[in-house]
């Protein structure tokens, strides 16, 4: 069992948790993820590792409530335990294996969207610790949804914010912000690393292709085991089928078949929405009872 040691709201429907899982904390590297299950009857869901603390033995995850399971996680509190918390899964970010001097010469830009901002943090932190500067664009719906701003500011060279409604920073999408930086602010990048909703990564990849910038994306396909056993997570990259959980989650964004990946993500949508409704009813029923007492 894996105890929840901290819980914090970050934005509407987005929250952070620290989980006591010393083995995972000890082996975690930037770019990797975990799979958790709330209880005996729960479903296994993948979440990116957002931070880890070897001394405390904890791993930080940031979760956006989108359906039944993420709601179930949100309903748990500090001191309660998760049934399963396994990892670290997937390959660490490619750059941690690169030659540091060469890495320092590269102009790196992260493009994060929504809850995808959280997993960018350990990567930036790692780079910063190793003396590598990187810029970042954070994209969010509006000001309230900008995550980890303070933390990220400390470990990045330049932080740009783009909001859909213009309530903070650049008004528009991250791709617009990227074009603006390149076209109007004389910015040049060798590598773009993008994490966020699939649709955002697709358009980031299309944009960077135009400028011929190498682009790495972190795919969040559906998963079951996370160890290569089921193939639920398969995606097509450069015309070949790959398993995201063991061969990814990072791939070359210019080679990913995003349309297929997005379509595959929606496979359980109708079943899941039924489940979410059932849970909603259950939660409502719960509240009613409290009201009556």
């Amino acid at each position: 069992m894996y105890k929840i040691t901290q819980k914090k709201d970050l934005a509407p429907n987005i929250f952070l948790m620290d989980i006591y899982a010393p083995r995972v904390a000890k082996s975690a590297k930037p770019g990797q993820f975990i799979i958790l299950k709330t209880d005996e009857k729960g479903e296994r869901v993948p979440l990116t590792i957002c931070d880890y603390n070897i001394e405390k033995g904890t791993v930080t995850i940031v979760i956006q409530i989108v359906g039944a399971t993420t709601q179930k996680i949100a309903d748990l509190n500090v001191g309660e335990e998760l049934d399963t918390f396994v990892g670290p899964l997937g390959n660490p970010s490619e750059f941690i294996f690169e030659n540091l001097e060469e890495l320092k010469d590269k102009k790196i830009l992260f493009i994060a969207g929504g809850v995808g901002t959280a997993p960018v943090y350990p990567q930036l932190k790692w780079l910063h610790k190793n003396g590598v500067d990187a810029d970042i664009i954070i994209g969010a719906k509006s000001e309230n949804y900008v995550l980890f701003e303070e933390e990220i500011k400390k470990v990045s060279a330049n932080l740009y914010i783009a909001t859909d409604d213009g309530s903070r920073g650049f008004k528009g999408l991250v791709t617009g912000c990227l074009e603006d930086l390149i076209e109007n602010h004389d910015k040049h990048y060798d590598v773009v690393i993008s994490i966020g909703p699939m649709i955002m990564m697709k358009f980031v990849a299309l944009t960077t292709k135009k400028y011929n910038i190498k682009t790495i994306v972190s795919l969040n396909s559906l998963m079951v085991d996370g160890t290569g056993m089921c193939g639920a997570c398969r995606v097509t990259v450069a015309g070949k089928t790959r398993f995201t959980c063991v061969e990814g989650p990072e791939f070359d964004g210019h080679e990913v078949d995003f349309d297929e990946a997005m379509r595959r993500q929606g496979q359980y949508k109708t079943i899941e929405s039924r489940k979410a409704k059932a849970l909603e009813e259950k939660r409502k029923g719960h509240k009613c009872k409290v009201g009556l007492n």
Binding site: K41, G42, E43, R44, A68, T69, K72, V224, D225, M229, C230, G231, A232, Q267, Y268, I271, E272, K275
Partner: peptide, 25 residues
């Protein structure tokens, strides 16, 4: 799907039992 995925959802994750959360198509 692979048989592994289908069977894992059904057996390990008890998708056939509606008390469990795992979806199966």
């Amino acid at each position: 799907v692979s048989a592994n995925e289908f069977l894992t959802r059904a057996n390990l994750m008890h998708a056939y039992d509606k008390d469990y959360d795992t979806p199966i198509y």
